[in-house]
Design a protein around this nucleic acid. Sequence first.
DNA 1: AAAGGTTGCAACCGCTGGTCT
DNA 2: CAGACCAGCGGTTGCAACCTT
Length: 270
Amino acid sequence: MTKSGERPKQRQRKGLWSPEEDQKLKSFILSHGHACWTTVPILSGLQRNGKSCRLRWINYLRPGLKRGTFSAEEEETILTLHSSLGNKWSRIAKYLPGRTDNEIKNYWHSYLKKRWLKSQPQHKTQRSDLLTESSSSLLSCGKRNPETETLDHVISFQKFAEKPSSSSPSQESNRNMITNNINNLPKLFFSEWISSTNPYIDYSSAFTDSKHINQSQDQIDEEELIMINNNYSSLEDVMLRTEFLQPDHHEYANYYSSGDFFINSNQNYF
DNA sequence: AAAGGTTGCAACCGCTGGTCT
DNA sequence: CAGACCAGCGGTTGCAACCTT
């Protein structure tokens, strides 16, 4: 202990996580939860800071994460949501089960933005100055400034607006898809569901605090919904699709609050 | 085969807002 | 009410893998 009574600061590791560290963190959180992230490294014996542990869990270790390439549907969802929400990656992630905000952000910067630029040679006329002069900094994730930020939104908006309607299923066909295929849905394990991103339930708090479990639809940002519905009809498709993937969240929430969650998530994944 | 360039992604940093004391 | 603490978010960086010359 120091004079002030604090613990002497342990040298904290940085950089890539080793498999041993991953295992320590994973088993600690699965058996104890994470009431307070700053205590997690101390209690689990990791030489990392709490922030780093939190990030590693959310972006990599959390059960139910999808890995690998984004599907065409996911791409469309990102483009659609980005066009109305901007760089609100965590909000966008809420509609992409199993994807993290970090993953979506990286995907946008490394692929989607470029794909759009490639497919839009005609824009050289109107916005050639902006696109040619700042595209290099854009593509290299240049420093934040109002101009590039605005351009981000312009890019994603135009991309969405110019998409042929055939590639974006109508609300009608989407509903049909739901009714036709509801029985063919893959069943989610609860751990998958709780780890996937449900727009109606703040599962991250729920994980350690069961009082949040019964939060329901009113938790959605109403302004967000209004904006989405006013601007783009296919954004409703996004919402439907998301709900479609996670139809039984209330039932699962009750299941979680019953305390069986950890047992089953352990069985399913470890 | 090797050097240099590019890409993708994991992780860090700094800021913000909420909660607690 | 103010300050401390914490979680969450978005921007940025570092580096390994891959590609090109």
